[in-house]
Design a protein around this nucleic acid. Structure first.
Lengths: 168, 168
DNA sequence: TAGACTATGTTATTATATAACGTTTTTTAT
DNA sequence: ATAAAAAACGTTATATAATAACATAGTCTA
């Protein structure tokens, strides 16, 4: 296994000040919502913060449980699904189809293509930009006469940290 | 919109003798199972045939309904899920994560990477080989230190036929 | 301040998938 | 041939994910 310079490692896989991930995500989201004149209500903000508790995608019902643990109140599924819908619509989170789960978007507020590297051991999902992938995908779709409207690229494997563990 | 030479169109998007798709899939599957000494039982064969009725991914419960319509007997979910599990395991079908649905594999019996072009109008899903995509994906994963174990590339858009309709 | 709109609450239900256990059929070893 | 084991399928119940439909509360605006 060749060494991977830490600069190329996705943030999710690197040691970092995660508290600032969370705070940054919230303040950026607040700005985006303000600019769009839509409301980041307390519930939506709370769901966003919970999604950002880690770099691991979380299911809707897990979020319900987390809300209950934080709040004593237990919201019903539609409540959390509506918050997720809002966050998806304004591109503050992504949905990981292969996991039925949701994760914070590190480059929020606008449409962009990306792919996810998902670790089957620790559950981390690292979002990466498709600068290299995207042209190939677009060329493939064009060749087949398809007009792309959305795409989902989810790569499951083992992250650097879990590979080290597995080797040991 | 530029004309797309019909040679580059995925089979699913071209006029073709679909009956021979179905028959070919069944006979190939039978050969593969024989070679592997596993059993393509009547139920498994029937589910495979149903999955191949079209080039559109079908949900498990749709398959249950189709079985009931064909047979008068109505199987319970575990029955059809077990058949699907077998067909997945031996790489005779694929699961489309973004649709919770299953589709016949045109290149069955062995592991291979691919991507799907899925039409949001007619539901067709065309499986394409990732000859061009795959190196980019592998390079991306390697750069991030990930060891790939599986991947899912699902591109949603509008197929050539539905684009023509939409233009009209 | 009435009306419209937005957000959330509430109840019920639909859709997808699996656990656990029982029965039947097939295979294998003797 | 036949008992033991394994594989396939049946059956019941339940887990998990998502949404429909309607009620209530809060907010904005004319």
């Amino acid at each position: 296994m060749s060494a991977t310079p830490s600069e190329t490692l996705p943030l999710a896989c690197r040691r970092h000040d995660h508290q600032s991930c969370i705070e940054g995500a919230i303040t950026t989201a607040a700005k985006i919502c303000q600019a769009k004149a839509v409301k980041l209500t307390p519930l939506r903000r709370q769901v966003l913060a919970l999604v950002w508790q880690s770099h691991k995608p979380l299911g809707a019902y897990t979020l319900i449980d987390m809300l209950a643990a934080a709040d004593t109140r237990r919201v019903a599924p539609p409540t959390v699904y509506r918050a997720l819908e809002f966050l998806l619509e304004h591109r503050l989170i992504h949905r990981i189809d292969s996991l039925n789960a949701y994760i914070g978007c590190p480059d929020p507020g606008h449409h962009h293509h990306n792919y996810f590297l998902i670790c089957l051991d620790c559950g981390i999902a690292a979002e990466c930009p498709t600068q290299y992938l995207s042209p190939a995908i677009e060329a493939a779709a064009t060749a087949a006469g398809f007009a792309i409207s959305s795409q989902s690229v989810e790569i499951v494997g083992r992250c650097p940290a879990c590979r080290k563990h597995a080797d040991a």
